[in-house]
Each structure stands twice: as structure tokens, then as C-alpha cells.
Simulated scan of single mutants.
Amino acid sequence: MDDGITRVFKKQESKANLGTKFVGLKIYAYDLVTSTNDLAHFLARNNEPEGSVIFAKGQTQGKGRLGKSWVSPYGKGLYFSFILRPDMPVDQASRVTLTMALAVATALTGMHVADVTIKWPNDILIGEKKVCGILTELSLLEDRIDYIVAGVGLNVNMAKGDLPKDAISLKEANGREFDIADLSHIIIKQIDHFYALLLRHRFWDIIQKVKEYSGIILGGRVKVSWEDREVEGYAVDFGENGSLIIRRDNGFLEKISSGHLTKL
């Protein structure tokens, strides 16, 4: 048992040969865990190198944003977490979430999945239903990032009855099953590609591509809620660190770094 945080069966560790530079050089594959993010934190605290991937066939306590759970039926979805150690200030951490979202969206589009969009800050949709969520968690060292755990949960081969009403799976959307291992490799390669751009200070290039996938919200009226605040207006652009810029009804432009977005 890894520090009491996970139930593990048939752990495998491999040196993957995906042709990547940063991400996926080392992959831990598990049958069942409580949460791949929790396990990634344990490994990161014990000096696991950047780019290591923790994959599981199922999660008993899958985690979503804002304390929500992520439905993780065994063998039907893609559940993996990434250990990243970018040299960047804390206020740029939100760049990682959008970089991950772009990588997943690009991978799905490359596999001929139609109507893929990014719903800021961390969801991938097919049409208007969620197919993928990203949970980014930080560990800080003074005023810098020590490491980031970025978890990805993707609904792959679930039937309609396996999912919440506002969710969809690749199988349901495309009428066929997907090979989860092949899909994971394609996504890892895209994450590696866009993460390399991020490390080369090319977030501007990343954000331009994010905009191409963000038609579902940009230009539309939205509401963003966080803690005890709520902002309503038109989503007009993204800021330099991935914040959402909303034009309020009084004409004031407000940058919002995170929150729960609702289309109006």
C-alpha cells in the first residue's frame, strides 16, 4: 500500500517508448486505485521525476474540481495523472490546465471525434456534454511551484446509463468502442508536445489554439461563480495566464482566473 492512500492490484512500471521528450518517459499502470491524483502526489513528494504518468483502469474515489467526484467505472474510461515540475511562478499555474485541455482536444480531433470544444477552465465537451475533465493541483515551495499534479478523466467506452445526465462518452458520441491504451498514448504525445511549447514560453501560441476550440463560450453570455462571488457578462477573450476576460454589462472588463462557468 502506498502510504495508505490507495488500493493497488497488479502494479506495473514501464519505460514507455512513445518518442516523447518530457511526458510519459515513465508510466505506472495500476488496475484499481482510490485516485490517480492522490497516488501522483505521494510519488511526487518522494522525488518522482517530471513527466511520470500514473494510469489506472478504475478509481474508487475519483476526484473532480470543486470537491466533486469523477465517475470512474473499471475498464471503461481513461484515468491518469501527470507529475509536472515547471519552472514558473504560481500565478502562471493556470496555464498548465489550458495546455492539458488543448492537448486532449487536439488528440480527440485527430481521432475523428466531431464537435470537440473546450469549456474554460478545465472541461472538454462533445456538443454541450462533458466528455473529459482536468483537475490540476499544486504543491508550493515558498513562492514557486514545487510540482503540479494534473489529472485527466476521460469517458471512453461507457454506456449512457453509466454517466451523469450532462456527460457523454466517446462510445456514445461515435457509435463505436475505442482502444483505451492506444488513446492514452495519443493523448500523452499531445500533452508532451504542448507542454514543451509551454516550457519554451510559447503560451501565446497555445492560447490561440485554445480559442479555436472555445467557440461554445467566447462571444456568448456566461456566469462564473467562485467562493462568495459571481460575475455575469460576455466572454470576450483569454488573458496572458489563461484567465477568462468577461465584459460586464457596465462595460467593465474583468479577468477571472478560475471558477465554475455556466452558459446563459
Rank of each mutant, 00 (worst) to 15 (best):
A44N: 11
G19M: 12
W226K: 05
N37L: 14
I206W: 03
K15G: 03
D237C: 10
S139Y: 09
G127C: 02
K10Q: 08
G233R: 08
G259H: 14
L108M: 09
E212P: 01
T99K: 06
L199W: 12
N46P: 02
K171V: 00
F203L: 00
F203T: 04
T60W: 06
A107K: 03
S184M: 15
Q92A: 06
K189E: 08
S257G: 10
F203H: 05
H112R: 14
D31H: 07
F22V: 15
K57Q: 09
K68I: 00
S214N: 11
G133P: 08
L141P: 00
F238Y: 14
F9H: 07
Q190C: 07
L141F: 06
C132V: 11
N241C: 02
F22L: 15
L140Y: 11
I216E: 01
A167F: 12
K63M: 03
R85N: 14
N241A: 10
I126K: 12
S214G: 10
Y234Q: 15
Y234V: 15
I246H: 12
T20S: 06
L18M: 03
E240R: 15
L244F: 07
G77A: 07
I216H: 04
D182N: 12
A196F: 09
I145M: 06
T6D: 11
G151M: 09
G151K: 03
H193C: 10
L253H: 15
D115E: 12
N250M: 07
F42Y: 15
M1Q: 13
A101P: 08
I256W: 14
I186T: 11
S72E: 06
N17E: 14
G110N: 11
I145E: 03
L84D: 08
I216C: 10
G64P: 08
F194W: 15
F238I: 05
D38F: 11
K21Y: 01
P73N: 08
I188T: 01
Q12P: 01
K15H: 07
I246L: 05
L264C: 09
D205Y: 04
S52D: 02
M88C: 11
K255H: 13
L183K: 09
S139K: 14
R95A: 06
A107C: 04
